[in-house]
């Protein structure tokens, strides 16, 4: 009976592989939509187009959540090797936290509509670009973990690199903010947004650290 269940598993595995790929696609797309949304905000403020992007990220987050739950349920009910199963679920849940940070940050832009002075808009854009590059490298590393584990380190070092770059830009941006002639409340508000965006890169690095351990375990 166990053998028949295993044989049926091969059919379902294919569907599961597609789901995992879909999940990673949604994470990458939400990062790209975030990048565009920030670009629109910095350029034109909270426009209809910005709200459209926010809506898009929202939908991506919801469907990524549904997908993750479905993958989790399938992994548990269809008996993957428990050791790997824990790692795969851990990875998916950690990746989910990045989508959540992305969505939360965009909501904060929409609700709080921070007033970003023209002098520092480029820095905000650069910070966003670096953070999104870190997420993209993480998605590539995660895909490699499933498809070709030998390639994981090739993507992993990029996550670390872009996270460091984002930190540098964030520090510089915060120094600039606090050197500006603005009310303290405004400075604190801007710093909060810089930190929120930088947090996306930081989370990516945290997930990459975990992925590194999962990879060592698999290759061990």
């Amino acid at each position: 009976m166990t053998i028949w269940r295993s044989l049926r598993l091969f059919k379902r595995t294919k569907a599961l592989e597609i789901d995992v790929d879909d999940y990673l696609d949604k994470l990458a797309q939400s990062a790209l939509a975030f990048q565009l949304a920030v670009q629109i905000y910095l350029h034109d403020g909270r426009t209809g187009e910005f709200e459209e992007k926010l809506q898009q990220v929202n939908e991506l987050e919801s469907s990524a959540d549904r997908l993750r739950r479905s993958i989790e349920a399938q992994l548990y009910s269809q008996m993957l090797i428990p050791d790997s199963r824990g790692d795969v679920l851990g990875l998916l849940e950690n990746l989910d936290s990045i989508v959540n940070v992305i969505e939360g940050t965009l909501w904060n832009f929409s609700i709080e509509t921070p007033d970003i002075p023209a002098d520092i808009r480029n820095d905000f854009q650069t910070l966003t670009d670096r953070a999104i590059l870190a997420v993209e490298a993480l998605v590539a590393a995660s895909r490699a973990f499933f498809r070709n584990i030998e390639l994981v380190p090739d993507h992993m070092h990029k996550v670390m690199f872009y996270e460091k770059e984002a930190d540098k830009v964030s520090t510089k941006l915060k120094r600039t903010i606090f050197a500006m002639d603005l009310p303290l409340s405004h400075k604190a508000h801007l710093r909060y947004f810089a930190e929120q965006i930088d947090n996306i890169a930081d989370r990516s690095e945290d997930v990459a650290d975990r992925l590194a351990i999962y990879t060592i375990k698999r290759k061990g």
Binding site: L7, L80, I81, S84, V88, N148, E150
Partner: peptide, 21 residues
């Protein structure tokens, strides 16, 4: 594994059946 590069989930499914056999 180097040549075919199967998906991690597929490797696990094969391993599972393989260990039973």
């Amino acid at each position: 594994l180097g040549i075919a590069k199967p998906h991690l989930l597929r490797i696990d499914a094969y391993t599972r059946l393989g260990l039973i056999l």
